[in-house]
Amino acid sequence: MAILIDKSTKVICQGITGAFGAQHTRGCFLYGTDLVGGVTPGKGGQKFEIDAGSSVPIFDTVERAVRETGATATMIFVPPVLAADAVLEAMDAGINVICCITEGVPVQDMIKVRAVLDAMGRSALRADSEMSARSADLPVLIGPNCPGVITPGAKTGGGERSGDPYTSASRGGGGCKIGIMPGYIHTHVSQSRLGRAVGIVSRSGTLTYEAVWQTSRLGLGQSTCVGIGGDPVRGLNHIDCLRLFDADPETHGILMIGEIGGSDEIEAAEFVKKHVKKPVAAFIAGRTAPPGRRMGHAGAIIGGADDTADAKIKALRASGVTVAMSPADMGTAMVKALG
């Protein structure tokens, strides 16, 4: 099951012909993602070459790409000031999982995008009179400024050529990587020594890889890893992922990586105490970061006292979360929490 995406998810890339878009489209394809096409306005009808053995079609619009490929997920690599429009275009075309990798999106753009997303969510919830999580056909935004999301598959190949992907459903594996994370550091539960899988959610890109790598080396697999991004206004937050992981039968424990700034981890701590039944471990980066670089008086008034690492660690511990004090101990904290 995992969360958000799995081996049957069809993925497109918006900005497929840019340098990063091209590099990571290829990377996802070689991992084994069912990557079915890409979008670059003005280049519709052309082909994007994965390698000599394979290519995928390029479309002018997301709407056309969805119609022709049946894609339900997208990864966005367009320039920062075009990212908001790219997210809205994906929503407009009915994409469910929108993963915005782009770094440097203006905050004011994200405030508007997030408001549109929230309005869709609210009206749908009212129509369904549901109190629980988003219904399956509502768009979920991951990011921006994030590494993406991956549901690892069992390693069945080399991952160097299109004919020999890292994980392949036809060879008994099959996973889905949408983003820029190195695939090989992840482990499918079937190939893990301890036979258990954890869900990982993180605000930081490379620190997520560190956490994944540690859990893999300690014998754990990962169900799904979500990099939610470090921007002040974004799509999914810690709580959304905690809820999804807690409901996922293939996830045995949850590792949450936070950092200083904002109050997300405090809210997550309260959520864990009230709702989460699975073991949770956490690490908060920035305990030794010097204060400063704050946004003047008004920022301090809004910020409150909750945004320090120590306040977050305290709140998480009070909710029964196993907190690693060293970033080298994130994996061992997870193993310990699993018991």
Partner: peptide
């Protein structure tokens, strides 16, 4: 590389008794 890992690197240097001279994120 990466702000979160850069902060975590400063954290672990301190935990080992060292003092970081800087924060430097080379980005992606």
């Amino acid at each position: 590389n990466g702000a979160g890992l850069a902060m975590a690197t400063m954290d672990i240097i301190k935990l080992h008794g060292g003092e970081p001279a800087n924060f430097l994120d080379v980005g992606g």
